[in-house]
Amino acid sequence: MAKGTHHVIIGIGIAGNRAAEILRERDPDCRITMITMSRLPFYNRYDLPKVFRGVRDWREILVDPPAHYDKSHITLRRDSRVTNVDGQRGTLTFAHNEEIGFDRVVVCTGGSGYLPEDLTDYRHLMNGFATFESAMTVYELLPEGGRVVMLGGDMIGLDLARTLLETGYRVTLVVNDYTFWPHRVAADQRGKYLEALERLGIEVHAGAKLESVKEGPKGMPARCLVFEDGSEVFGDVVMPFCGLVPSVEFMLSSGVDIERGLLVNPQLRTTNERIWAAGDVCQIWSAEENAYRFYYGWNNVRAMGEVAARNMTGEDEPFVSIGDEELYLDKGGHIASPFWQHD
């Protein structure tokens, strides 16, 4: 086991992984433990739609080969959920009842798909798309040329929709407040973006409020959505894409300030000096806006991982948001977003 400071990174997404790289670079002797609930090492979630393009072996979307962790002297703990972080004692506890100590911890737990209250009753009839496993499940459920009904349609969902259409599947979009999340699109602008989606081949279902989701009758697609105006939409798979909620439950008794995400100063430190946060999980103080706010997208999340790690190892630098955050139509009239850009 490497000697020196023990840095723990909870979450091995883009933020956590970047933090690990920087920590190792800046402190070659430190001990690094990375923790994830996933059974897989870090893979590129932006690549998940590729399962519809024939990438069905998770090894093809790994960012680093498994040997990378040993080479970098990183202890990778998978299938491990953190249930509590004690910033005073410098310990954290796992769901499997193990306690480990740390000198500094950076929380990079991202967010999980948000399910609006009125949809929670139908959870068992819907499929998520946050992990390789869930992506494969959707792939296996969809018959050739099958239809996916997307509820909401955030930018994660719309990215998937593009792939589905290109690979011979059909997509119906049920528009709600979360369509285009995390972009905030003014009411008078929505029409042009929805039209752009229609041009792509997405069937847009806007207006009528969803009343229920149920199993489709025999001989019909597996799911049926009923709307208040009596109309019905059938699909083989129903997927909610309504933005993310930060994964912070395990931090509730850690003593740090939490609003929706973990509240951090521009240096990405929480209200406990041993605990830092980066990525989709944190709300960063913006002096300009005089408020805590989220920043999304690959580039921002990666930069946060870097800044947190640098500051954990002695720097005192603020996070500066990278890139544009607006949704737009490109020259060809196709919907485009900085959210979709990544390395």
Partner: peptide, 27 residues
């Protein structure tokens, strides 16, 4: 491996600390 042991475990006493990055853990 067992992922809901009854007793509190000290650091490194759980299999998840030892599964190699190339192996698949099923708690």
């Amino acid at each position: 491996f067992e992922n809901a042991p009854i007793a509190r475990l000290g650091e490194g006493r759980h299999m998840s600390a030892h599964v190699k990055p190339g192996q698949i853990p099923y708690g």
